[in-house]
């Protein structure tokens, strides 16, 4: 097993004919992901290197059995694309698009949670289950299959930690980038619950950053619900309040959302927090090797 994406993934890419969608969609296919169709309204009947392009997601579901959608359409159309995928019956939606308005995400979040759909992102690198499927922009070649679940709000920082684990001979069950926006489809808690239920995942690494209170919620959830060991890393200890640090969601508002508060909340629940990405990988390696 693994979570979110695996051998059963049947992927439709919304925005496959755009440059980014094409590049990453084909990259995902080259990795072994079962890419079955693309959707670009008005371009139905064309193909992208043999992948059929359709006008609607509904057609990808009814005629091709799509069960996972990846969204690469520009931000002004991303919310509509999520609704279309969910309405077509897609159970897992991964939205890579950056710059989706926060109000769009408030409505979408409420909508998908009411329906039990898994939405990852927006503004995220996607999900990779090494050896099975890659849906998104994660550089799969630096990861190997293994038993460590990795969940993060950041892309390159996750790659860094994953890469260090790989160099230590450790692999990952699934790597999930949940995205750097203030409101994302799946929170740390949502993904932690999936890792807890996944028999292949034995250890979990959670990579947080400043802004919001999802790490604090995760700390309480880990103590109450998780039996698997969790190691955390938090970025942004030296970030000034009121400044957006690259990610729209990475902002300290007043006195809330600081890295120090998150670290304290995690450590209060007995969760180890690394001071650098390297130290975090070393702590995980120490635990995984017993």
């Amino acid at each position: 097993m693994s979570i979110i994406v695996d051998d059963d993934t049947r992927l439709v890419v919304q925005g496959l004919t755009g440059s980014e969608g094409r590049f990453h969609g084909l990259r995902n296919r080259a990795y072994g992901t079962n890419l079955i169709a693309g959707v670009t309204p008005g371009k139905g009947g064309q193909d992208v290197e043999g992948v059929p392009v359709l006008n609607t997601v509904a057609e990808a579901v009814s005629a091709h059995g799509a069960n996972t959608a990846m969204i690469f359409v520009p931000a002004p159309f991303a919310a509509d694309a999520v609704y279309e995928a969910v309405d077509a019956g897609i159970a897992t939606v991964i939205c890579i698009t950056e710059g989706v308005p926060a109000h769009d995400m408030l409505r979408i979040h409420t909508y998908v949670h009411n329906l039990g759909v898994t939405l990852i992102g927006p503004n995220c690198p996607g999900a990779l289950s090494p050896g099975k499927a890659n849906v998104g922009i994660i550089p799969a070649e630096i990861f190997t299959a293994g038993n460590i679940g990795l969940v993060s709000r950041s892309g390159t920082l996750t790659y860094q930690i994953g890469h260090e684990l790989t160099q230590m001979g450790l692999g990952n069950s699934t790597i999930v980038g949940i995205g750097g926006d203030p409101v994302v489809g799946s929170s740390f808690v949502d993904i932690l619950a999936k890792f807890q239920a996944d028999p292949e995942t034995e250890y979990i690494v959670m990579v947080g950053e400043i802004g919001g209170d999802e790490e604090e919620k995760a700390a309480a959830f880990i103590e109450a619900e998780l039996t698997k060991p969790v190691v955390a890393y938090i970025a942004g200890f030296t970030a000034p309040p009121g400044k957006t640090m690259g990610h729209a969601g990475a902002i300290i508002s007043g006195s809330s959302g600081t890295a120090a508060a998150k670290k304290a909340a995690l450590e209060a629940k007995g969760i180890r927090v690394g001071t650098t990405p390297t130290e975090t990988a070393e702590i995980v390696a120490g635990i995984a090797r017993g």
């Binding site: 950041s154 390159t156 860094q160 990579v207 942004g236 970030a239 890295a259 001071t275």
Partner: peptide, 16 residues
């Protein structure tokens, strides 16, 4: 740095 998270982490490490 490249990427928001890695760059935040880099700023932290300079401080450390």
């Amino acid at each position: 740095g490249n990427g928001a998270g890695l760059t935040m982490s880099t700023v932290d490490v300079v401080t450390f």
